[in-house]
Design a binder for these strands. Structure first.
Lengths: 189, 189
DNA sequence: GTGAGCATACCGACCGGTCGGTAGGGTGCA
DNA sequence: TGCACCCTACCGACCGGTCGGTATGCTCAC
């Protein structure tokens, strides 16, 4: 798909954006770290913004695909929630840098791209919401806490993950994913 | 405490930082929006960084004070958790801009200030953790999910709040606070 | 030869911060 | 009362430096 140079640019940009922030990272810094030149970067990307957008696109696309795959299995609500959360936590833990950039620099998306992004996020949100509501309607979950609040909480936790998760810590992503899913499901029952 | 001009600078900075980000907001923009001049700003603050730090300081100080007040009441674990979460959610909902800036721009604190901040956050975190652990030891809470994960989840939710909470929405901060506390406590039992 | 894939030199805009100066109110002394 | 003296609050032109982006040209595979 993406050529080697293009991929190297994205990887380097993600790393630098995550550690210093988007604005604090100059284009010169990216090309130096990637071992290329400005000419190469601007050959592949029209503007610095495009780097950010590409990072978002890759992340969102992969998350949405994971969710669709799980929904298609047609499992009961409880198991569906567990699978979605587990896959989301694991993939987020494996890409903390991308997620950190995503959460932190989201606001600098332009109008058009922001609209696209919102549409995609809404779709994700509402798919998740529908599963929770179905579980509540079936009596599998309690209805004490409104479904929309549950979804906000569940997805919010994942977005905050880059703030404290350390890949070199003692807790593996899979184990953490299990704990988070356990907690959310316990709250739902 | 703070003079009118000083307060106006902070308020304006918070608003602009929240909507555009710290780096993307120039000092000139702040002074224009506040109806003052650069001279005035640099009369009260030594550097642009100091604005950020002051925003953090105000937020952290007030949160820590809230928590200490609640702990001092000596309520049972469940009620203590409810009170802490409720007060945190309400105060965060009332200051979404400050919290958004805080979460997003945290990484640009310098070494010294970062160390101060970490110490304060650790204290907050561990006080909360101790309450959860006490509840688990007393048998009031289940021990299925480790206490540290529960604390991460609970505090993570609050930090994510500025991403989706809208002051003009239909849900009041108090109601939302109740729902979040309900959910967390349900997960703990 | 011709277009993709770069390298290099450079541009103009803008940014954080500085600095010499001013307006005006308080204070003390004659 | 009045005037010298100061001090805080504030002004705004300006500076060195950095930034994102561009113009131009070389090279090499086809």
């Amino acid at each position: 798909m993406a050529g080697a140079t293009e991929q190297k640019i994205i990887d380097t940009a993600v790393r630098l954006f995550a550690s210093q922030g988007y604005d604090a990272t100059s284009v010169q810094e990216i090309v130096n770290a990637a071992g290329i030149t400005k000419g190469a970067l601007y050959h592949y990307f029209r503007a610095k913004d495009d780097l950010l957008f590409e990072i978002y696109r890759l992340l969102i696309t992969s998350q949405a695909a994971d969710m669709d795959r799980i929904i298609a299995l047609g499992l009961p609500a409880g198991e569906t929630i567990r699978e979605i959360l587990a896959s989301l936590v694991v993939s987020t833990a494996e890409r903390v840098d991308e997620t950190a950039v995503f959460v932190r620099e989201l606001h600098r998306l332009g109008e058009d791209r922001m609209a696209d992004f919102r549409a995609e996020r809404r779709r994700y949100h509402e798919t998740f919401l529908a599963v929770v509501e179905k579980g509540q309607a079936d009596g599998e979950f309690s209805s004490q806490v409104p479904a929309d609040t549950v979804v906000r909480i569940a997805l919010g936790v994942v977005n905050q993950l880059p703030m404290w998760f350390r890949p070199d810590g003692q807790k593996t992503p899979a184990r953490l994913a299990g704990e988070i899913a356990d907690f959310v499901l316990a709250g739902l029952r």
